[in-house]
Design a protein around this nucleic acid. Structure first.
Lengths: 204, 204, 204, 204
DNA sequence: AATGAATGAGCTTTCATTCAT
DNA sequence: TATGAATGAAAGCTCATTCAT
C-alpha cells in the first residue's frame, strides 16, 4: 500500500477537511460515513482518527472555517461609512458570497443542521451565535442609517431586519439547495428594493 | 362488513402518517427510527410494513399530502381579480401559512430534503415539480399585473420572481427552523415592500 | 436461513446466557466478542440485542444467577444447629461446590472481575456485596460457636475469619484456575484443620 | 563508548518495564494500551517496539523478573534447618511478601493470567513451572519435617500441600485483589494453625 | 391484518503493529 | 535509535427490513 508520506501533516488534515466538506455538502453529514471520507481523502480508516477525534470533530473544523470567512466579510464592510451605501454594500456582499460554489456547499451543510434538532450542543451554540451576530450586524447598519437621517424612522426596526434576513436566507436556500443561480442582476434588484423601501423621502 | 375494515385500514395508515409527520418534523427524517414511529403510532414493527413498503414510502405519503394542501391555497387566491391585490393576497396568504404550526413542521421536513435532493429520485421529482409550479404561479400573477398596467414593465420578470421566492423561502426558514415568529406586521411590511417596488408610478 | 422459532423466547435467552457463560469462563469476558457468543448461541448479531442491551448486560445476568445459587447454599446450611458442625458443614459445603464444573467456570469469570479494576459500577457493587455477606456469614457461624462454648474465645475473630476466607478463596483459585482437582479428602482435611484450631480444649 | 549506549538502552527498557508493570497492575493487562505505556514511559509508540516485539513481550519480561525474585525468597529460607521452623519460616516469608505493594501489583497481574491461561503458550509454560516448583518446595519442607520426626506421618502428603497452597493463594487474592490488608497477626495465626495441625503429639 | 423475533449489512471507533523518515 | 503517521482488522452496537406465526 502506498504511503503518501510526502504530504505534510497539515496537508493531510486539509485533505480530510476538504473531502469531508464536499461529501457533507453533497450527501449530507449524517449520510456521509467515515468510510466515504476515508476513500475520498485516500486515507485509512484509522488514519482519520490521527487528525480528528470523531466525525463530529471534522464538522466542527469545517464550521470554524466558515465562521472565520464570515467575519472577514463583515470586517471588510465595516470600513464604508455612508449609510445607504453601507446597507447596499452589506447586502450585496452577503449575497455575492452565494455565487461561489464554496458558499453553496457551506449553506447545504448549514441547512442540514439548522433544520435538524440540536444534536450537538457545541454546534448549536456556534450556530446560535452566528444567527445573533447576523441579526445585530443588520440592526447596527440600519440604526446608523436612521441616525444619519437617510432612512425613514416611521418603520419598526424589527420588521425591516426580518425582511433583510428573509432575503438573505431565501437567497442562500435558492442558490445552494434549489440550484437557482444568483446573478449580479438579482443582487442589484434585491438591494434596490430594500433601499427603496427604507429611503426617507419616499412618497408612498 | 368490508367497508368497516377499509375504514379501519385507512385509519391505521392515517395514524402512522401523522405520527411520522410529527417525528420527522421534530427529530428529522434520518434521525427518526422505525421504532419511534411504531411506538408513536401504537403499532408493531411489522405492522407498519403492511401499509408502507419502507420508511421512505412514509415520507413520500407525507409529501403528497403537503402538495395537495398547497394547491388548495393557490386555488383560493386565483379567484381575486385586481392585479395589485392579487400579488398582495398571494404573498400574504403564502406567508400566513407559515404562522401555523403544521406548516412549520412541514417546512422542517422539506428543508431536510431540499438540502439533500439526490437521495431519492421520486422525491427529487416531486420537489422539482413544486418548485416549478411555485415559479409559474408567481410569474402568472406578475405578468397579469403588468398587462393590467398596474406594475411597471421596465423590470426583468426573472428578477422580481427571484425576489419573491427569496422572501417566501426565507420566511419559511426563519419561521420553521430559526424559531423567529412571523407576525402579521412582518407580513404586511414584506407585502408593502414588494408592491412598492413593483408599482408603476414610482419616482425612483 | 433457518429460523429456530420453535424455541420459545426464554429458551433463546437461556441459550445465549449459557453460550456466553461457557465462553466467558474459557476465553474470559473481555476476550469474548459478541460475534463469539452469536456463533455459539446460533443467533445473529442483532438477535442478541433483542434479549440483552449490551455485552455487560449478559454478564450481569450470569452474575445474578450465581448469586441466586449462592444464597441457596447458605440457606441449606443455616438449618443445622450444633456449632462445630455448623462450621464444618458451611466450610465443606462451600468447598464441595468447587468440585462442580459449573462452579469452576463461575469462579474463572469472577476472578477476572475481582482482579480487574472496577470497570462497571453495578458489577462492583454486586461483587462487593458478595464479599461482605461472605464475611458476615463466617462471622455469624464462629460467634455462635463461641457463644455455645465450643470454640475458644482467646482468638481474635478477625484472624480466624481471614483464615477461613483464605482457604475458601485459595481452594476456588486452585480448583478453577490451576486445575487442581479438589477431592473430598482435601475438603475433610481442611475442615479438620480449622475445627482443630478453633476447638476449646486444645492444649497449645 | 558502546558501554554507555548499552547502559542507556537497558535503562530505557527498564523504564518501559516499570511503567508497564504499574499499569498492568492497576488497569489490567488487556485494558492497558500501548499508548498508556508509551506515555508513562515517556517514549514514542514506535520506540517501544525497538525494545519489545509486542505488548505480550513486555508482560513476559515482567513475569521473568517476578520469577527471579521468587527464587531469591526460597533460597533464603532453605538455609534454616529445624523442621517446624522451616515450615513456619517458609509460610510466613511467603505471606509477608504479600504485605508489600510490589507483590500486590504482581499478584494482580498474575491473577489476570492465571484465570486466562490458554491465551499464550509461552506464558502458560512459565506459570505451570511456577506452580510445579511451588508444589515441590512445600513438599520438600514437609517431607523433611516428617523425616525429622516432628510432623505426624499419618496424614496424606498431598492433602497438607493442598492446604498450604490454599492458604498462600487465598492470602494473595485477599491482599492484592480484595483489598484485605494482611497483618502480622494474620500471618502468625495462619502459621500457628498449620503447625498445630501437623505437629506429632497432637491429641486429636 | 398484525406481531415481534430474527436478520445482517452497516455504523463509528479502537488499537497493536508497521514503516518511511 | 527514535519518531509518530498510517494501517486495517476487529470491536460493540444500530436499524430498516423480513417472515414464521
Amino acid at each position: 500500500m502506498p504511503k503518501i508520506s510526502v504530504l505534510k501533516k497539515s496537508k493531510r488534515k486539509e485533505l480530510i477537511i476538504e473531502a469531508a466538506f464536499d461529501l457533507f455538502a453533497s450527501k449530507g453529514y449524517s449520510a456521509t460515513g467515515i468510510r466515504d471520507i476515508m476513500r475520498a481523502a485516500n486515507i485509512s480508516k484509522g488514519g482519520i482518527y490521527v487528525y480528528f477525534d470523531s466525525k463530529l470533530d471534522i464538522l466542527l473544523a469545517i464550521v470554524e472555517r466558515m465562521d472565520a470567512k464570515r467575519h472577514t466579510i463583515k470586517d471588510e464592510i465595516d470600513i464604508t461609512d455612508e449609510s445607504e451605501e453601507k446597507l447596499s454594500s452589506y447586502l450585496s456582499s452577503r449575497l455575492k458570497v452565494f455565487q461561489t460554489l464554496e458558499s453553496q456547499k457551506w449553506n447545504r451543510i448549514l441547512f442540514e443542521f439548522w433544520s435538524l434538532p440540536k444534536e450537538n450542543e457545541e454546534l448549536s451554540i456556534i450556530l446560535e451565535k452566528r444567527k445573533t451576530s447576523f441579526h445585530s450586524d443588520i440592526k447596527g447598519i440600519i440604526q446608523h442609517g436612521i441616525r444619519m437621517g437617510v432612512f425613514r424612522s416611521d418603520i419598526q426596526m424589527d420588521l425591516i431586519i426580518y425582511q433583510v434576513m428573509c432575503t438573505i436566507n431565501g437567497a442562500a436556500l435558492l442558490s445552494s439547495s434549489f440550484g437557482n443561480v444568483l446573478t449580479n442582476e438579482h443582487i442589484s434588484a434585491a438591494v434596490e428594493m430594500h433601499i427603496h423601501f427604507l429611503r426617507k423621502n419616499n412618497n408612498v
